[in-house]
């Protein structure tokens, strides 16, 4: 479960955001998970809950909203934009590698039009802390 490490990173980012905003109590974390990394929404919510007890008090009562974002690739060679259903992976190991390091899609995925591995991941890569909501002005 390397999701726990990512959940812990989200908490640390949330704490920094709370400090910057002068919040004493964070009520809600809104987190986006990208389709490319294949982290399930439910599992990530569970991961966030699991690491909560070891975090700063300001986060102790936080709830989570996890939303999913579709992956979108943009080919640097021909300009085509495409999604997850437009690429095919050979086996589960390739999916597993991308799960750990989404950039390994460049090793295994190709543009459906021109075959290039030279693409940008325009959206839906991995985990983002979209915003925090809370109270207190420090």
């Amino acid at each position: 479960m390397h999701e726990l490490a990512l959940a812990d990173a989200v908490m640390k980012a949330a704490l920094r955001a709370a400090e910057d905003a002068g919040m004493d109590r964070v009520e809600r974390l809104v987190v986006k998970v990208g389709e490319l990394q294949q982290i399930e929404k439910d599992l990530f919510e569970f991961s966030l809950t699991s690491v909560l007890s070891s975090q700063d008090q300001r986060l102790a009562d936080a709830s989570f909203q996890v939303t999913e974002e579709r992956v979108r690739f943009g080919c640097n060679a021909c300009g085509r934009e495409y999604g997850r259903n437009d690429i095919s992976l050979d086996d589960s190991d390739q999916g597993e590698a991308i799960h750990f390091i989404p950039e390994l899609s460049h090793a295994f995925a190709r543009c459906p039009d021109c075959g290039s591995p030279d693409f940008e991941i325009l959206a839906g890569r991995g985990i983002t802390l979209e915003r925090i909501e809370g109270t207190g002005d420090g």
């Binding site: 750990f100 950039e103 390994l104 090793a107 030279d118 890569r125």
Partner: peptide, 19 residues
């Protein structure tokens, strides 16, 4: 082969450092 542009290299590095 792992063909990566600069931004992708940075992102892969961040991922590995974080986990």
């Amino acid at each position: 082969a792992v063909p990566l542009r600069g931004a992708a290299t940075t992102s892969a590095l961040l991922e590995l450092l974080a986990i």
